[in-house]
Amino acid sequence: MLFCFGLYGVLAKKNAIAVLMSLELMLNAVNINLVAFNHFLYNQTYDFNGVKHAILTGHVSALFVIVVAAAEVAVGLALVITIYRNRLSTDIDELDWLKW
């Protein structure tokens, strides 16, 4: 559901910042998926020298996704600022110097 909200936002929003926010929604949907699968389906442990450790593949993957998403949005915002300087607008519909 959250993923679909995000996808709708990316497709329908006019402001570049809102599009970036919708992107975050999509990535967070992935994170929730990963963490929930790990917690509810694969809540296993393994023995290492007699000590029990939880297997946290999903949690760790979610951490990686968060870091990458942060890097992505940093570049995205920088680009939005560059475009704003060039044409004083962050409206996606005005990005028509290159025809689709």
Partner: peptide, 22 residues
């Protein structure tokens, strides 16, 4: 044009990696 291409690439690229990740 270059920064416009950059932003378009970023949005479409990020959406596609989000789909891949999902």
């Amino acid at each position: 044009k270059s920064s416009e291409a950059g932003l378009k690439y970023l949005i479409l690229g990020a959406v596609s990696s989000a789909v891949l990740l999902y």
